[in-house]
């Protein structure tokens, strides 16, 4: 969510930057977050660490999930989920158009599909990991809405919800860390994108509280933030 075309008003840099980021995104696209630097970084982490059955939480336009299905041979099935009905439709349209939707191959039974066939791809409208079984996924990827936002400036529309992490920037990260362990299969990994704008150390504290070991898979610095993707594994297995 780095904005490379910052304006010139000499006010509180962090707050002004956040407002401009949100405003720019809001103007650029009205309902669904479009792929940006953070999406590319999460996709590269998925290429390195994704395998088996993969869930992308908060898939937005479905770009990362489709990349996982198409480009990562270790990934056998992809579930893309989002709270927003607009994002869910966009993700499904992208998958069908990109040919990563396993079911579009005529009437071919998925079990009978030849090796190298596209993995299964499904879209589910969901709140984080709530409607998924225990131990369901080998990989869970999440690029959360993370921009800290003054409650006075919230718009309460779908784009705002795609970007804002509430006052702390961690409004979605905390419940994600508290629940993702349940749906991870033994040996599974969660890939979480963290921005320095959100407070890297505060996220790491929460990671440890929730019983995860972490390592940094990929990291990029931009003028106003550093983005990292953490691989989280259960402490006992690390």
């Amino acid at each position: 969510m780095t904005d490379s075309t910052e304006g010139t008003e000499p006010t509180d840099p962090t707050e002004e930057q956040t407002k401009r980021d949100l405003a720019a995104r809001r103007g650029a696209e009205t309902a669904v977050y479009q792929p940006a630097e953070d999406s590319a970084l999460l996709a590269s982490a998925v290429e390195k660490r994704g395998r088996g059955r993969l869930l992308e939480v908060g898939t937005g336009s479905g770009w990362v999930a489709s990349r996982a299905a198409r480009d990562v041979p270790e990934v056998s099935a992809v579930v893309a989920s989002d709270l927003s009905p607009h994002a869910c439709r966009a993700a499904r349209e992208r998958a069908v158009a990109g040919g990563v939707d396993g079911a579009t191959v005529d009437e071919a039974d998925a079990d009978a599909a030849p090796a190298g066939a596209p993995p299964l791809f499904d879209v589910v409208r969901a709140d984080l990991v709530e409607p998924f079984d225990d131990d369901a996924f080998d990989t869970v990827a999440f690029n959360p809405p993370y921009l800290p936002t003054d409650p006075e400036n919230e718009w309460d529309d779908w784009m705002e919800r795609a970007l804002s992490g509430g006052q702390s920037g961690r409004e979605l990260i905390d419940p994600f860390l508290g629940t993702v362990g349940r749906v991870l299969a033994p040996g599974g990994v969660a890939l979480l994108l963290v921005s320095s704008l959100t407070g890297y150390d505060a996220v790491l504290d929460r990671v440890r509280e929730c019983g995860f070991e972490h390592e940094v898979v990929v990291e990029e610095s931009y003028p106003f933030e550093t983005l990292s993707v953490l691989a989280l594994t259960r402490e006992a297995e690390a």
Binding site: G102, A110, D122, F132
Partner: peptide, 16 residues
């Protein structure tokens, strides 16, 4: 959704 997705879905209210 594929029918195979049923293997990993549960009721979000109580995980049944």
């Amino acid at each position: 959704m594929k029918e195979s997705l049923m293997d990993i879905l549960c009721d979000p209210l109580d995980k049944s």
